[in-house]
């Protein structure tokens, strides 16, 4: 396997068999497990901005940098602090974090599931306690990112090397024709995040142990002049914006994820109380 280290965006290239590498905490395990294949690693750390300037966050900024920066809204800081472990947060970038693959065990173990291009979602009929309660008709996987839910509630916009878009437009539910969960084109790079400044924000997380676990349910709330925005982690194949607390009642839980609705309810209430 070849490693390239471009120093300008033009040199990044992309194309077949070329994989973009930043912190490596996501890509390396996926390569190891045979979930992605490639012959060239392109180290993008030389070309993706890193650091925090006002409301602009470089996509190459580490989670560990975000969790301690007073300029960063509370919801994002708390989501970073509650994610993964200190070691992983010191390597993983916020751009990569947005693009994490699901932890669905069927997908990870390469069952020929809907997300892998197959006909059925094995989780729907099988073991799915960590799985989705929204958007789960074809694929019940859960998106694992805590910061993504926080950034969604914060009304984040992204700049890539090709376009600008709202964070919500980065994600899509997998369909019959296209099983991907993002709208990124091959080789497209997230460069910067533009994060609105809320009047108040918070992120609350329920997990199976005190630290280093993906969210069973994560709730982000951010209050702006025109109202409060809510977003959830761990409840759908993609980060899930919730129009209102009442929208929780529209959840379509599976038998093994019904508890997540019960779990989300007090967390949403508490998050709303926290942002006032």
């Amino acid at each position: 396997m070849e490693l390239r280290q471009p120093s300008s965006l033009e040199e990044v290239g992309g194309g077949n068999g070329s994989l973009l590498l930043a912190g490596g905490t996501e890509l390396v395990p996926l390569l190891r497990d045979g979930l992605v294949q490639g012959d060239t690693l392109v180290d993008i750390r030389g070309v993706v901005p890193r650091g925090i300037q006002g409301t602009t966050i470089g996509a190459g900024t580490m989670l560990a940098e975000l969790e301690v920066d007073p300029e960063v809204p509370d919801a994002l800081r708390e989501a970073c602090r509650l994610a993964a472990s200190p070691q992983l947060r010191s390597m993983g970038t916020i751009g990569g974090n947005l693009l994490q693959a699901t932890r669905c065990w069927y997908w990870r173990l390469q069952y020929p599931c809907f997300l892998h291009g197959g006909d059925v979602c094995h989780a729907r009929q099988g073991v799915h306690r960590e799985h989705a309660i929204f958007g789960n008709e074809r694929c019940a996987s859960a998106h694992p990112s805590d910061p993504a839910a926080a950034l969604l509630a914060l009304g984040t916009r992204l700049r890539t090397d090709r376009r600008e878009l709202a964070l919500g437009e980065l994600y899509r539910l997998p369909t019959e024709d296209d099983r991907s969960t993002t709208t990124l084109e091959p080789g497209e790079l997230i460069l910067e995040l533009e994060v609105s400044r809320p009047e108040a924000s918070t992120y609350l997380k329920a997990m199976d142990r005190a630290r280093w676990a993906f969210p069973l349910v994560g709730v982000a709330a951010a209050r702006f002049a025109d109202g409060v925005r809510l977003a959830l982690a761990g409840v759908a194949p993609i980060p899930w914006a919730l129009d209102s607390p009442a929208a929780l009642e529209a959840a379509t839980p599976l038998p093994g994820t019904a508890y997540k609705v019960e779990l989300a309810r007090p967390l949403i209430r508490r998050a709303l109380e926290a942002v006032g």
Partner: peptide
């Protein structure tokens, strides 16, 4: 509180094969 070996009822395969899926206590627990 957290460790559980989960098995797919159809294939009999153990699903919790990694340290993020099979949750040992951390020092924080």
């Amino acid at each position: 509180l957290s460790e559980e070996r989960l098995v797919d009822p159809a294939s009999g395969r153990v699903l919790t094969q990694t340290l993020d899926a099979y949750k040992l206590p951390t020092i924080a627990d």
